[in-house]
Amino acid sequence: MNMKTKVLLLGTLAIALAACNNDENTTIDTGDSRALFSASIGAQTRAFDTSWEGDDQIGITGTKTYTNVTYQTTNGDGNFTVATPGKEIYYQDDNTVNFTAYYPWNDLGAGVTEISADTWGQSDQKNFDFLHATATGSKAKPNVAFTFSHKMAKLVLTIKKGADVSLDEVKAAVLLLEGFKHEGTFNITDGTTATKDASTAGWEFANNSADPAYNAPFVVDTKNETVAYTLIFFPQTFASGLDFTAELTGIQTFSTTLDFTAANADAGDSEAKNEWVAGRQYNMSVTLHKTGITVTGCTISKWEEADGGNVDAE
């Protein structure tokens, strides 16, 4: 081997070694920079109330490139993939990306960030049980885990049979609630809600034959002879107690007022108000008697939950 050949080989070897050393300090893009999304809801695991359902959809926004992209959990297991193939979210560079997500996904126009809803239609609670979450991700850490929180308030009214009242009469009772604002908006960007001006008057949420869509979901407990109604509302503050009315067999009508101040105080609010707080579940028992109604307190439980006690309506 002559000297010229030796010089060429050494030069080639030096270039190869330099290339290897540079590779050790360079992030190699495999060509797949997709963001991967999973989601849970606080201490619980559901979009609408307690668990995700198959094909539940969320809207995800991240960077200026991606806005309100639809992702869905096909199997209801909390792992989300893009609803429309080809619309996947990709990391554009090596920077960390701040993502926001909300549920349920809505097909919003360009620049629209608010969803309007009317909570009178309790049979379709899934459409306004709004959730919101934020999380970060990057090419280096592509897995984005959202933890959603409820942005509405939930009221669980357990109706009990009292003196001279049968379970069948409890199940057939027409129940009314008024004094709250049933319309409002949800902001998908920051998860805030707002109510509109009109207050509800004489709204029937149980055994409403004229407007069945207003009827709230319920569970009958034959052992304890109760009927529990679940209602979801926009968070709001009240100037006075809410009027609650029960009509038994279309003959007797009894009324009382519902107040949530004590429940919020028990939940730790230093300046408790008569209000529905976002993310709280208010549990209240109402006993129907032939002579009136008894309301037994109010508690707050996991949604976050709040105990409102029992009420007797006389």
Rank of each mutant, 00 (worst) to 15 (best):
N2G: 07
M3R: 08
L9Q: 12
T12L: 03
T12N: 07
A18D: 13
A19R: 03
C20L: 00
N21S: 02
E24V: 15
D32Q: 02
L36Q: 10
F48G: 06
D49M: 08
D55I: 07
I58L: 08
T63V: 14
T65H: 03
T67W: 14
V69F: 06
T70L: 12
G76I: 12
D77G: 08
G78M: 08
T84M: 13
T84F: 01
P85Y: 05
E88A: 14
D93M: 08
D94S: 15
D94K: 11
F99P: 02
T100W: 09
Y102D: 04
N106C: 13
V112F: 14
I115T: 07
D118C: 10
S123V: 12
D124C: 08
Q125M: 09
N127C: 05
F128R: 06
F130H: 15
L131A: 05
K139L: 14
K141W: 00
T147Y: 01
V156F: 04
T158W: 04
G162R: 01
A163L: 02
V170K: 05
V170D: 00
K171W: 01
A172P: 03
A172R: 06
A172W: 06
E178I: 02
G184H: 10
T185N: 03
N187K: 15
I188W: 04
T189D: 07
T192H: 11
T195L: 03
D197E: 10
D197N: 13
A201Y: 02
N207D: 09
N207H: 10
P212S: 05
Y214T: 10
Y214W: 09
T222L: 04
K223W: 00
T226I: 00
T226N: 00
A228D: 13
F233I: 09
F233T: 04
F234R: 01
F234Y: 11
A239L: 12
G241A: 13
T249P: 03
T249C: 11
T249A: 06
I251P: 00
I251W: 05
T257G: 10
A262H: 03
V277M: 04
Y282F: 13
V286W: 01
V286Y: 00
G292F: 00
C298K: 06
E304A: 08
E305P: 12
A306L: 12
A306I: 14
D307C: 14
G309F: 09
V311F: 07
E314I: 01
